[in-house]
Design a binder for these strands. Structure first.
Length: 966
RNA sequence: AGGACCAUAGCUCAGUUGGUUAGAGCGCCACGUUGACAUCGUGGAGGUCGGCGGUUCAAAUCCGCCUGGUCCUACCA
């Protein structure tokens, strides 16, 4: 074995082997355990969030697989409508100078598919680097034919149930992308904006109660004035009661618009008058509905002003008889140019009363970054109320459980206040809506054109054209769990693996995806999509900032695995930026943070870091120093294994039991102790993974490996393995053989079990070492090694109660106590670590004396002693440095060794420590209500503590005086 | 405006049903290359658990208020 762990030399090899050996597919036996990957975008590359999430899923998957479950972790990718289309459009513009319209729909789609074939699997290749044991044979893509069939089926059935409808509605319109987007795709950002107060002249010579000839309305969007249909005042507002039913002469346009009473107008805000623009504002749309106003749309799909308005009634029917004229001077102007001009014109007309500067929030498209415009368009909607009810109930009833629990509140609060979901998108890339129109605009929803004709008796010579729009990507991903298992066919896989067991996802996607999956899956399968939702936090940079290209703080998981030079990292962060002016600052910050670039750490260290940071919090600040630490942990495990193999390889490790002709083994106290500790660790790790506490699971493993197995057990094995038989009686020599065999067996067996415990978290290193260790542990025959077996297929270690040995544990704790005591004296007395010293033990019980005899070889070796003796009479003790282990004193005779002042200082420090504790406990016990009211066990415990501390203090004081008297 | 979550050692985080001497890793200080490992070993320093108040015999833990931070929803005429 290499002297240090070299991950790059083993990772790719093992992943290929596992994949070639088909180890990721369900075994076909055992209780089903299934999980669907939240499908990553084909446009994306693996980011820290994916890596984190995939680590958790893979850990669960490998764990369940080892526990004997019929385990399916299904992989797939998402077509990501807008993102992919944008990407290919940009590429097309850059390479050929063409737009998608130049190509036409079919040719453009060919381009997208071409791109998908070339680049769409980038992210899945990276997923392999993470060690993800997904079943590649069942890889799915949301645009696959089979999945499209499910999407169509759902659309048609929802339509049949009147849960999908089409209508001219106000939607969030992205003027850059020319598509509607859902509420969730709108990002509300704080802005500083202007608030224009306009005078709206009253028509017909009407005056307000206080004699004004106008009302004042305020707006942040003056350009919508062109589409105003009225001014609302509050019905309770006495100031304007007399004006209700009168008219305003809309400035610049000349339209007569009514003054209406509507509760939407807030008496306390501004003048109390609100302009109403039903076609351009969501609130006004509602007012328009109540007041039976027309909808006057004044913007094109580019958000430029129309030459003539489009006027509809509330049913969306065009009103050709209405006056749609608009002032010619604003026609075709962009909305913001029109705004400027309208403000100027109002000002010139003396109608601008005031411009206020305000902080408000504005809606931005999360993809385009453009300001979203509420726009009246024909769209398809899902009526969500009926779907939401059972989805809420499923969580209330515990059919679906969120981990951590508090995310259920987030889910409920959203689910209980749902708007109908706009599912159509004016894109080309996506699932085309299965609806056809005849020449009169009648719509027919069906799975195919043929079906549409059949269902509605449409003659073959009637031309039908399919709806141009596609469905929201989230509509299809809502079907992910069952659509990918073959639904609507009742497949074997569907029966076996649905509902899935767990969904692992980020809290940011609960609304987008989780909630919608629950609704759709309940509707179409009558069952939940998953029983548990494990919600994790979002990975942020070391300062807690969201990682983003524009901030220049992105870390690529692959770079953490393979390492990257500083120059390459800077190039990666500053190359191809949207805002190149930031490049300099980013380069500087990067050079400051990563002076020497990033060293290679290997996949396992990265995975272990993610797991250790998988706490219940919402933010995960990625900590590079912990990554370093867990790489060191890999190296520790590697070297411990190297030690084990050096001592066990080629030796008799008791693989063959005595019953089957193998030699006898004698287990030392240390052997029994570590076996016992292993059982407890196995139980803890199991429990923690079951509870989704990956941080605790990784910590439990780390503690055992480093602090027990390496720090103590390997050291304790040395005296046994290195003991020479020379000069022994033949009986003792024969026994030594058995003792050595027992220790080798324990070394190897514990390591082998540890590797299995580690495997779900650190698949590569555990496999690599296991292949060498397992034959020695008897769990893998020599002939199989490296050939046909894998730790992946081995059983998860179950805690064996029979191996728990409390007496051995107490013994080793005693031994550790004595060794630490001696080391402490050494360190504080500046005794050279290598110097062999004498130690006396005294004042203890008979059991202590007995333990000294049992543990003497260990003690001598680990504490580097010249001698260790029991002193029956404490009075005979020479002047010594003293440490306490329980009641027992550990004495290091001072002769020629110990610095008097140093020892006095050390003792005083100890005494002070005890005094502090005694004070605290005495205070507690002195409180009568404590002794009266606290449970007896608690009081007794305090009394015990006091007695212990007092006797210890007395011993230390006695010792201090003895030395002080010198 | 409403709600959620967070605030523990210099840093990143644990702390289960209230009773612990409040823990881990990293960092820091001192010492150390003897045969698994300097990606290491040994010893050590470091916290009035954001603040105030309450409940209780007992609060990092439960309750209230406040401060600071993050996020969501809503409003924004």
């Amino acid at each position: 074995m290499e002297k240090t762990y070299q991950p790059e030399s083993i990772e790719a090899r093992w992943y290929q082997r596992w994949e070639a050996d088909n180890r990721f597919a369900p075994s076909g036996s055992g209780a089903p355990f299934s999980m669907m990957i939240p499908p990553p975008n084909i446009t994306g590359s693996l980011h820290m969030g994916h890596a984190f999430q995939d680590t958790i899923m893979d850990t669960l998957t490998r764990y369940k697989r080892m526990q004997g479950n019929n385990t399916l972790w299904q992989i797939g990718t998402d077509h990501a409508g807008i993102a992919t289309q944008m990407l290919v459009e940009r590429k097309l513009a850059a390479e050929e100078g063409k737009t998608r319209h130049d190509l036409g729909r079919d040719a453009f789609m060919d381009k997208v598919w071409e791109w998908k074939e070339e680049s769409g699997d980038h992210i899945t290749r990276q997923l392999r680097r993470m060690g993800a044991s997904v079943d590649w044979s069942r890889e799915r893509f949301t645009m696959d034919d089979g999945f499209y069939k499910a999407v169509q089926e759902v659309f048609v059935r929802l339509h049949e149930d009147n849960l999908i409808y089409r209508g001219k509605r106000l939607v969030n319109w992205d003027p850059t992308l020319h598509t509607a987007i859902s509420d969730l795709e709108v990002e509300n950002r704080d802005q500083q904006g202007s608030f224009w107060h306009f005078r709206y002249p009253l028509a017909d010579g009407v005056k307000t109660d206080d004699g004004q000839d106008h009302l004042v309305v305020a707006t942040t969007r003056p350009e919508t004035l062109l589409g105003d249909t009225g001014v609302a005042v509050n019905p309770e507002d006495p100031r304007y009661a007399s004006l209700v039913g009168k008219f305003i002469e809309l400035p610049l346009v000349g339209r007569r618009i009514p003054i209406v009473a509507d509760e939407h107008a807030d008496m306390d805000k501004g003048s109390g008058c609100v302009k109403i623009t039903p076609a351009h504002d969501f609130n006004d749309y509602e007012v328009g509905k109540r007041q039976n106003h027309l909808l006057i749309n004044v913007f094109s799909q580019d958000a430029t002003v129309l030459e003539n308005a489009e006027i509809y009634n509330l049913k969306g029917q065009a009103q050709p008889d209405e006056d749609a004229s608009l002032p010619a001077k604003y026609a075709r102007l962009d909305r913001f140019e029109a705004r400027k001009l309208i403000v100027d014109d109002m000002d010139a007309a003396g109608l601008l009363q005031e411009v206020e500067t305000v902080n408000n929030t504005m809606p931005f498209g999360d993809r385009s970054g453009d300001i979203i415009e509420p726009l009246l368009t024909d769209q398809w909607f899902v009526a969500v109320d009926e779907l939401a009810r059972p989805a809420i109930k499923a969580v209330e009833d515990g059919d679906i459980e969120f981990v951590p629990k508090n995310y259920e509140n987030m889910y409920f609060s959203w689910m209980r206040d749902l708007q109908d979901w706009c599912i159509s998108r004016q894109l080309w890339w996506g699932h085309r809506i299965p609806a056809w129109y005849d020449e009169n605009g009648n719509v027919y929803v069906a799975r195919t054109e043929e079906e549409a004709r059949e269902k509605h008796n449409i003659a073959a010579d009637v031309a039908l054209t399919q709806d141009d729009d596609v469905l929201d990507t989230w509509f299809s991903s809502a079907l992910w769990t069952f659509g990918t298992l073959g639904w609507p066919e009742q497949t074997e896989e569907l029966a076996t693996f649905h509902p899935t067991s767990v969904l692992v996802t980020g809290f940011d996607i609960i609304f987008f995806w989780v909630a919608r999956m629950i609704m759709m899956t309940l509707k179409f399968t009558g069952d939940v999509p998953f029983k548990t939702v494990y919600v994790h936090g979002l990975v942020r940079d070391g300062q807690g900032n969201k990682m983003s290209k524009s901030k220049g703080n992105v870390l690529d998981p692959i770079d953490l695995i393979d390492g990257i030079s500083l120059d390459d990292l800077v190039e990666k962060r500053t190359g191809n930026m949207m805002q190149p002016q930031k490049a300099k600052a980013i380069a500087k910050a990067t050079r400051a943070e990563f002076k020497d670039g990033i060293e290679p750490h290997g996949t396992d260290a990265l995975r272990f870091t993610f797991l250790s940071q998988a706490t219940t919090g919402r933010d995960i600040k990625f900590d590079m120093s912990r990554l370093d630490g867990y790489r060191n942990f890999c190296n520790k495990l590697w070297n411990a294994s190297r030690y084990v193999l050096m001592n066990a390889d080629g030796e008799d490790c008791g693989q063959v039991s005595p019953e089957q002709g193998g030699g006898d083994v004698i287990l030392s106290l240390a052997d029994r102790w570590i076996l016992s500790a292993l059982q407890k660790t196995a139980a803890s790790v199991t429990r923690y993974i079951d509870d989704y506490r990956f941080d605790h699971a990784s910590q439990a493993l780390y503690d055992f490996v480093w602090n027990e197995y390496c720090d103590w057990y390997l050291e304790l094995s040395k005296p046994v393995l290195w003991e020479e038989a020379e000069g022994m009686s033949s009986v003792a020599a024969a026994e030594l053989v058995k003792r050595k065999r027992g220790t080798r067996q324990t070394l190897v067996r514990v390591l082998e079990a540890v590797l299995r415990l580690a495997h779900p978290m650190m698949p590569y290193i555990s496999e690599e070492i296991w292949q060498r260790v397992a034959p020695l542990a008897g769990t893998l025959s020599d002939t199989q090694a490296g050939e046909s077996d894998s730790i992946m297929a081995k059983a998860w270690p179950e805690a064996d109660e029979r191996l728990i040995d409390d007496s051995a544990s107490r013994n080793i704790e005693w031994l550790k106590g004595v060794i630490v005591a001696v080391r402490n004296v050494r360190a504080e007395m500046n005794i050279a670590p290598g110097k062999q010293i004498d130690v006396l033990l005294t004042k203890g019980s008979a059991e202590d004396a007995e333990r000294l005899e049992q543990n003497r070889p260990f003690l001598m070796k680990l504490a580097k002693l010249e001698s260790a003796a029991w002193l029956d009479n404490p009075g005979d003790a020479p002047l010594s440095a003293t440490q306490l282990v329980g009641d027992m004193e550990v004495l290091v005779p001072m002769a020629g060794l110990i610095d008097k002042d140093a020892e006095l200082a050390r003792l005083q420090k100890e005494i002070d420590k005890h005094d502090k504790q005694i004070g605290a406990v005495e205070k507690k016990l002195g409180n009568e209500s404590f002794t009266a009211k606290a449970p007896k066990a608690v009081v007794d415990k305090e009394r015990g503590k006091l007695a212990e501390a007092q006797s210890a203090r007395a011993l230390l004081e006695e010792q201090r005086q003895k030395i002080a008297a010198l």
